[in-house]
Simulated scan of single mutants.
Amino acid sequence: MPDVLIVGSYITDLTARTAALPKPGETVIGTDFQTGPGGKGGNQAAAAARLGSEVVFVTKIGRDAFGEQAKHHFMKEGIADTYIIETEEAPTGTALIAVDDKGENMIVVTPGACGHLSAGEVEQAEKVFEEAPVLLLQLETGMGAVEKAAELAFRKGAEIILNPAPYRELPDRLLQKVTYLTPNETEAEEMTGVAVTDKDSAEKAAAILLSRGVSTVIITLGRKGCFVMNNYEKFTVSGEPVKAVDTTGAGDAFNGALAHFISTGMELHEACLLANRAAAVSVTRTGTAPAMARLEELKRL
């Protein structure tokens, strides 16, 4: 039985490091290049699996070289691939990533096959929805797949974590099924019109999202940690002071870890504290899925 079910994107990361990110129309010289597994769904699956969760991943990949790399990655990380769909009609998704010396990044995502994951294909995995206590979703696939997954999980009484990234308009009928909504500051502002710059503005944005039917709002604040609010409590969890090498995938590290710790029955404050630690570990090294933390690293931090 899975601890965490993830429906979402698998994308191959094509990452170049450079001293400074290019301005529009500018060409810069890179210092390093690597390819590796990624995508928000893939990163979050790796994050949860490395912490000890039994993870089932529903996604779609192409029958191509990147798809073969994906299958090898799933096997290596212990991610169940029973419901991973292969297609010849679209290539495996890719992300073009540039990372500068400060660890900041610019990303262009081409979803490819996972962008064509359909509601009907998600429904074919209905059996696993009966078993998983936690469903984790993001927005790099089509909305039909996202809404169908939320519908199936809600019907079975699972807790649903929705990471609303990359941002898009979301219907209230979806938000009303969400147990934990995890926007970053930018996504929270896009969803509410409130610029999140401090605790007061985070609380104002969270209140708007709660009014739309979400049970709990967790606004991630990068190195500042996160702000958490529901109808019973509100609190801030401080970030971990580490030297960032590559911030790509930090939000995915947080969400995958949150799903893992929620699935164990851990109290929310503690789960957010440890999810912050997982994100902090991930930014201390390069890459996305390969940078995800293991449990012993959180204990050391």
Rank of each mutant, 00 (worst) to 15 (best):
G62M: 00
F74S: 00
V178A: 05
A289L: 06
E26I: 14
P133S: 10
A158Q: 08
R17M: 12
R285C: 08
G256V: 03
F129L: 09
V283M: 02
D3F: 04
D100E: 13
G112A: 11
D32P: 01
P290E: 11
I61A: 02
V146W: 00
V58P: 00
A119D: 15
C114P: 04
F57C: 02
L96Q: 14
Q124H: 15
Y167H: 14
D81H: 12
D252A: 02
F154W: 11
S282W: 07
A293Y: 04
V109I: 12
A280E: 06
M229Q: 14
S282G: 06
M266N: 06
L268M: 13
G8C: 06
E88D: 15
V194S: 01
T27A: 10
V146T: 15
V281D: 02
E131K: 13
E54I: 11
N105I: 09
I85A: 05
V56M: 04
K156S: 07
S282F: 07
S215I: 10
A206P: 03
A46I: 14
A253L: 05
K234H: 15
G287V: 07
R63N: 13
T264A: 10
N255S: 14
K204D: 12
D81M: 14
N255Q: 07
G38N: 03
A20E: 13
T31N: 12
T27S: 13
A202F: 00
A98L: 13
Q138W: 07
M229A: 10
K127N: 15
D64Y: 09
A98R: 05
K224I: 04
M266R: 10
T247R: 11
K204N: 13
A48I: 09
N163V: 10
K148P: 01
A188Q: 04
M292G: 06
A150C: 06
V7H: 00
A19R: 13
T182N: 07
A271N: 07
P166L: 09
